[in-house]
Design a protein around this nucleic acid. Structure first.
Lengths: 111, 111
DNA sequence: CCAACACTGAAGCACTTACTTAACTATTGC
DNA sequence: GCAATAGTTAAGTAAGTGCTTCAGTGTTGG
């Protein structure tokens, strides 16, 4: 579910905006309300809510409303999924370089 | 350089598109020419070049032209930078949860 | 030399994004 | 109850994205 291309689209898209990354950054230090998320950002509350909805749709953030305040938290599983996608490609590349290095070392020995 | 917000914007933006992720995926298995990158994609070569230019601007891919073919490779440093940004936020969140767990366990013992 | 090859660049078009303002709903404290 | 609080929703707009086609440029094999 977290690994399907559409979900990865949404996650990376969500992380591509500095305001949304700032929101994730704030949430990594603990839960916050919408207004608390909005406070350091130079934009209307309405804009923040729209960013938050994207973050929630991407799965990176989970929210729950109690009374009139919506409290937001990070969803570490989603972060891990994005991290994992990148990590696999990087490792694949680096393993390939290692094998290439070994090959070159071996063929050098065979002189 | 790789950690400034604008560069992260470009990297996550680049990864937000399935065609570009497919190109990165292909490159994680070894270098490729533009035509080779284009081959599995259902779009014009021109569109592929435009995607490739974004990938290069983001720093995720490096290319060099020899004769008439442009050969593309992954830049693992950039992948690592994106990975690292996500990883730090996730760890920050998870450490916070651990401390919270410890605190709750301690206060329970104090009865 | 010249045709095929591997791209490259510009223009145009449909669609999406990141906001804004303004009007609204639902809670809460007094 | 009623004003302040916390958030939501809709509509509008300027700029950005992801393609397309078409007309190039430079390179290479025969």
């Amino acid at each position: 579910m977290l690994h399907d291309p559409a979900q990865l689209d949404l996650m990376f898209q969500a992380l591509a905006d500095p305001a949304r990354r700032q929101m994730v950054d704030r949430l990594s230090r603990g839960p916050a309300s919408v207004s608390q998320l909005a406070e350091p950002l130079a934009m209307s509350l309405s804009a923040v809510v729209q960013h938050l909805n994207l973050l929630e749709a991407s799965g990176l953030v989970r929210t729950q409303k109690v009374g009139r305040v919506r409290t937001c938290q990070i969803e570490p599983k989603a972060l891990r999924a994005a991290e994992h996608w990148i990590n696999e490609r990087r490792l694949s590349w680096e393993r390939r370089l290692d094998r290439l290095g070994d090959f070159l070392a071996e063929t050098r020995d065979e002189t």
